[in-house]
């Protein structure tokens, strides 16, 4: 996984709570068997005025001019700001892949759904959960001023020419992003402990380990 580097761009803001993963990437695109190419279909139902399908040439589809991602002032944004309970619903990791493929590296919200939050760290996307007070501060900063935000994960700060906010993240999650850690390799360091556990349990609860 790529290491997380400092991000400094405008922030795209959508004033909506409970954005679910069906909205982030609709079902017809889940038929793909790869992890990339989902960016064109991020928020597909909201972003385009016409229906689309996997394999279509999406640049030919009519865009919804009122949708925030089609607003030129958010062009090049690597930071997404959205309301409460972002990423609720389906476990589809395609939602994270779509956000990343579109170019986002950071999502800021007042809260995230558990599975989505977890999926972010497997792909190098930084979800920042802010207390309501700080969340409102951020909205104020980007909504009217369209300020450039700088996200520094090492120092755990969000800053612009007008604001400076510290955010919380647990140490392990931070380390994973900063160093681009591969979880599987880490886990396999404990290979012997896993085997030891299996040996113990297959005596205690043999039915769990039955051959199919």
């Amino acid at each position: 996984m790529e290491k997380f580097k400092e991000v400094s761009t405008v922030a795209a803001y959508i004033d909506r709570k409970n954005i679910d993963t069906d909205a982030i990437i609709p079902k017809q695109y889940l038929k793909a068997v790869t992890r990339d190419g989902f960016g064109d279909n991020l928020f597909d139902d909201w972003r385009y005025l016409e229906p689309g399908n996997l394999g279509d040439n999406h640049s030919l589809r009519k865009k919804n001019p009122e949708f925030f991602l089609n607003n030129s002032k958010f062009k090049g944004a690597k930071i997404l700001v959205a309301g409460d309970n972002f990423g609720c619903g389906s476990s589809r990791e395609h939602a994270v892949w779509a956000l990343m493929d579109f170019g986002f590296r950071v999502v800021i919200s007042s809260s995230f759904a558990d599975i989505f939050y977890n999926n972010c760290f497997k792909n190098g996307l930084l979800p920042i959960k802010l207390e309501q007070e700080n969340y409102i501060k951020i909205i104020g900063d980007i909504k009217n001023k369209n300020n450039i935000l700088t996200i520094n994960l090492n120092n755990q700060t969000i800053s612009s020419k007008d604001i400076f906010i510290k955010f919380d993240i647990d140490d392990r999650r931070k380390e994973v992003l900063v160093n681009g850690i591969d979880d599987i390799s880490e886990t396999l360091k404990l290979k012997n402990k896993i085997i030891e556990y299996e040996n113990k349990q297959s005596n205690k609860t043999p039915w769990v380990f039955n051959e199919k």
Binding site: R35, S91, E93, I115, N119, K122, N123, D183, I184, T187
Partner: peptide
Amino acid sequence: FGIGTSEVEH
């Protein structure tokens, strides 16, 4: 509980 694809791989 449900997991994402990276965790499926894990």
